[in-house]
Simulated assay, not measured.
Amino acid sequence: MVRSASPPDDGEERVDLQVIDGGAVSDGVDAVEQEWHRIRPDIDVSSFGIVTRIWRIGRHLDTKRKLLLAELATDRGAIDVLAMLRRSGVPYRRSAGDLTRSALITSGGVSQRLDKLERAGMVTRHVDLGDRRRVEVELTETGLELVDVVLAEMTSHDGELLGAALDAHELDALESLLRKLLMSLEQRSGSSVPRARGRSGRVAGRQ
């Protein structure tokens, strides 16, 4: 016997889960995979369930992360820069070039983020007197306070989302498997982040 179990109407995307006698649970991805098995039994679509679920999970987490950052009056671009400075330790200063390489975006993209953050009083920029081509970026007290608040909120929020679905042992196993998969993908691509070409044809990524 198959019973449908749908989540409450709380504004989230509704997903029908099929609960089969014995406790097995089947989601919408299973249904699509089964249809492909029926239509094209000659093709192995076993990877479909894994890749599609990773993609869907990523979309859900990305949406929730954007909403959380918006509630905190910031965005991912700003927090990426502030977090890189925070992780560097006292005095929370790194070169603009280092930020560009770490962020894996163009120098123009980092410059725009820094302009916005400097106007907001989150960072200050200093020209190296020994090499005027080198610009150092330093986190201000205001920027430090913001990134610490965001870090606390994000870790708490993410922990609640993951803990609602998986126990500690499952989370450890999932992290290990995802690490193994990510390392394999990065070794194949030769980069820690997939690089995309801009309109000019230049690669936007690690230079």
Rank of each mutant, 00 (worst) to 15 (best):
T63D: 15
T63I: 13
T63N: 15
T63H: 15
K64Q: 15
K64M: 14
K64C: 12
R65M: 13
R65Y: 11
R65T: 14
K66Q: 14
K66S: 15
K66T: 14
K66L: 11
K66F: 09
K66W: 12
K66C: 10
K66P: 08
L67T: 14
L67D: 13
L67Y: 10
L68K: 11
L68T: 13
L68H: 12
L69F: 03
L69Y: 04
L69Q: 03
A70V: 03
A70M: 06
E71G: 09
E71P: 06
E71R: 12
E71L: 06
L72D: 05
A73S: 07
T74K: 02
T74F: 02
T74W: 01
T74H: 02
D75F: 08
D75W: 07
D75G: 05
D75V: 03
D75P: 02
D75A: 04
R76Q: 11
R76A: 08
R76I: 12
G77Y: 09
A78M: 03
I79Y: 01
I79P: 01
I79S: 03
D80N: 07
D80Y: 02
D80M: 05
D80F: 05
V81G: 01
V81T: 04
V81R: 00
V81Q: 01
V81N: 00
V81D: 01
V81F: 00
L82N: 01
L82V: 05
L82C: 02
L82Y: 01
A83N: 04
A83V: 04
A83W: 04
A83P: 00
A83G: 05
A83T: 01
A83Q: 06
A83K: 00
A83C: 02
A83L: 06
M84V: 00
M84E: 06
L85I: 00
L85Y: 00
R86A: 06
R86T: 01
R87P: 00
R87M: 04
S88L: 06
S88D: 08
G89N: 10
V90P: 10
V90W: 12
P91G: 12
P91Q: 08
P91V: 09
Y92Q: 11
Y92V: 07
Y92M: 09
R93E: 11
R93K: 10
R94P: 03
R94F: 06
R94W: 08
R94H: 08
R94T: 09
S95L: 07
S95T: 13
S95V: 06
S95G: 09
A96R: 12
A96Q: 13
A96F: 07
G97N: 14
G97A: 13
G97T: 10
G97Y: 11
D98R: 10
D98I: 11
D98E: 13
L99A: 14
L99V: 14
